[in-house]
């Protein structure tokens, strides 16, 4: 019962944050609602027992990545979004397409409601067990991701750096 109540409360907060992300016009409001979504998702992970994932979600996503986003928004001085008129074809084809896709997904989910129920903290993912798994079974992927992150750091530095000013040739005209 407690599990269901907590799931519903934080799921509602999560969906409200996601919808607010779409509804807001200013990027900084969208970024803050994304922080709400990520924090409530961390609670959902905790309900499933994934403690390590919940902690990393708060530290990496809600902390580091969102700070990066907010920093870039402020750096670029992003203002409110300009609305543009979408194409008529998208409007005519898109809304029936979305409705059909949504109905299909809803029908499948209604047909398959016999999924197992999980208790509170179903699969405890303590940092110790995750770490043991990470450094034994998943050692190669782990090392590959470290190289990936290194490449990403270098790429970010190269892309975001200002282009070098051209060497000034001393002018001889008088």
């Amino acid at each position: 019962m407690l599990h269901l109540v907590l799931f519903l409360v934080f799921g509602a907060i999560c969906v409200a944050g996601a919808v607010n992300l779409l509804a807001q016009n200013h990027p900084i409001s969208s970024a803050l609602s994304l922080v709400v979504v990520m924090a409530s998702l961390a609670v959902e992970y905790l309900l499933l027992g994934a403690e390590f994932v919940a902690a990393v979600q708060v530290i990496v996503y809600a902390g580091a990545v969102m700070v990066l986003f907010v920093f870039v928004i402020m750096l670029l001085n992003a203002g409110a979004e300009e609305r543009t008129q979408g194409s008529r074809v998208a409007l005519v084809l898109g809304i029936p397409g979305v409705l059909a896709g949504g109905l299909l997904v809803a029908w499948v989910l209604v047909q398959r409601t016999n999924t197992p129920e999980v208790p509170l903290g179903a699969l405890p993912g303590f940092p110790k067990t995750i770490g043991a798994l990470l450094f034994h079974q998943f050692l190669l992927p782990f090392e590959v991701t470290s190289i990936l992150v290194l490449i990403a750091i270098m790429g970010a530095v190269v892309l975001a750096s200002r282009p070098e000013p051209k060497m000034k040739v001393p002018e001889k005209e008088s």
């Binding site: 994934a50 390590f52 994932v53 990393v56 979600q57 990496v60 996503y61 580091a64 990545v65 990066l68 986003f69 870039v72 750096l75 670029l76 699969l123 993912g125 995750i130 798994l133 990470l134 079974q137 998943f138 992927p141 991701t145 990936l148 992150v149 490449i151 990403a152 750091i153 790429g155 970010a156 530095v157 190269v158 892309l159 975001a160």
Partner: peptide
């Protein structure tokens, strides 16, 4: 859960490169 960890690492790398591209 280990896969979620990997997805987060890749997402962080993607965010840093993507935001650098946005700045450029």
């Amino acid at each position: 859960q280990v896969f979620v960890f990997f997805v987060m690492v890749v997402a962080a790398a993607e965010a840093s490169v993507g935001l650098a591209i946005i700045i450029a």
